[in-house]
């Protein structure tokens, strides 16, 4: 299951959703809003998404992960809107019979999500300025 939400993510609940007696391993990845980047303090992080496309791409990521690895549960929850430092921006939980597949799938899911899912982060710095994060793009 995949989900985009404006509400705070509860990682423990996401992990619970992949629990199964068939599993021998459960892996939970939580991405969190970092307070300091390159010495600058983040007051807030704002996430925007192209919701319709982001949901489709997340569903495709889940389907591809299930093809590549023997997964029992696979949950991806991404927050959007405005986050305080320390809050979870994304939680990915997978379960599988053996740990190697769960670790590999969780790593692939977060790495690929960052590249292909149309979600964008804006740093709102403590000095009042703000900046979109667009990897590889020159600053505007």
């Amino acid at each position: 299951m995949v989900e985009l939400t404006l509400e705070p993510i509860r990682p423990a609940d996401v992990l619970t959703r992949v629990h199964s007696t068939s599993a021998g391993a459960e892996v939970l990845f939580v991405g969190t809003a970092r307070e300091f980047t390159g010495g600058r303090r983040t007051a807030l992080l704002h996430y925007e998404c192209y919701e319709k496309m982001a949901i489709v791409r997340l569903q495709e990521l889940e389907a591809e992960a299930r093809q590549r690895w023997n997964l029992i549960g696979c949950e991806i929850v991404h927050r959007f809107g405005t986050l305080q430092p320390g809050e979870a921006s994304v939680a990915i939980a997978v379960s599988s019979p053996h740990r190697q597949e769960a670790f590999q799938a969780a790593q692939w899911l977060i790495d690929t999500l960052k590249e292909v899912v149309p979600i964008w982060k804006q740093e709102q710095w403590s000095d009042g300025s703000s900046q979109w994060v667009h990897p590889g793009m020159p600053p505007t």
Binding site: V90, W120, M137
Partner: peptide, 12 residues
């Protein structure tokens, strides 16, 4: 068609 302009993603 619904067309969108998408700068490089930075989710996660």
């Amino acid at each position: 068609d619904e067309i969108a302009c998408l700068p490089p993603a930075s989710g996660g």
